[in-house]
């Protein structure tokens, strides 16, 4: 770690990644922010050495195809800035589907993320879907096929994710079946909502690719809003 006196402060940029921006991969999002920060002329700390690059820390990578209202990236400012003004400047330098909601001092570290709220919209209103979903989610165990690392290789493994689901509500909105669900999140025990969708799709015959996923909020283990 470089000495902390090289930058003035570390701040957390909260942003929403919605609409077409959900098709921007995590790596491309990193590039996108590097360029947006440059366009907005925000003086941030660059790594040193042979190949200096903008130092950005994203709390969690977001899967391709998922919209989110709770994304963050931490940046290190080289001078004191009015954070509200900074948020407006950065927002103006971003494409329309990425929106800065605020910039503030970090309260928790990314390691403290434990849970996340998702809203999953199934673009169909089959009567049996809600019932089937409820059967699956209320069962004593919920086994899904997960790709896990085994040494260097990735292998498929059956795991029970029952204790990784904190709560859920099944509802109907505008003729669509909607699942609001809180899943284990973070670097260690992250559960990708697509695992749940695939499980539901597998038994009910619906097209998993038609479900839209929106990430709403992240929490600490104590269920405090992570920010």
């Amino acid at each position: 770690m470089p000495e902390p006196n090289k930058w003035r402060s570390e701040v957390r940029v909260f942003y929403e990644k919605t609409g077409m921006a959900k098709y921007i991969s995590h790596l491309d999002t990193v590039h996108l922010f590097t360029r947006a920060i440059k366009r907005a002329k925000i003086p941030i700390w660059f790594t040193e050495g042979y190949n200096p690059h903008a130092f950005l820390t994203f709390a969690m990578p977001l899967s391709l195809g998922v919209e989110s209202y709770c994304e963050t990236v931490d940046i290190r400012l080289m001078q004191d800035e009015d954070l509200e003004e900074l948020a407006v400047r950065l927002d103006n330098a971003l494409p329309p589907d990425i929106h800065i909601s605020k910039i503030s001092a970090p309260r928790f570290s990314p390691q403290e993320i434990a849970w996340a709220d998702y809203k999953i919209i199934f673009n169909c209103a089959e009567k049996n879907l809600s019932l089937y979903m409820n059967d699956i989610l209320s069962g004593s165990e919920i086994t899904v096929v997960k790709k896990v690392k085994q040494g260097r290789k990735k292998v498929e493994k059956e795991v029970d994710i029952k204790d990784k689901i904190l709560r859920y509500i099944i509802a109907s909105e505008n003729g669509n079946t909607v699942l609001n669900i809180t899943l284990s999140s973070g670097a260690q025990n992250n559960i990708n909502p697509s695992l749940v969708i695939n499980k539901i799709a597998e038994g009910s015959g619906i097209d998993a690719d038609r479900a839209s996923i929106i990430k709403l909020k992240s929490y600490t283990a104590e269920m405090l809003e992570w920010e």
Binding site: M20, G65, P96, D97
Partner: peptide, 25 residues
């Protein structure tokens, strides 16, 4: 700007951002 009928296809293809438009500038 992607039309409604295109959207469901984007979840099934590689690099969907090739087909969305809406890039800066």
């Amino acid at each position: 700007m992607v039309k409604k009928e295109v959207e469901p296809l984007l979840n099934k293809v590689q690099k969907p951002a090739r087909y969305t438009g809406g890039e800066l500038n």
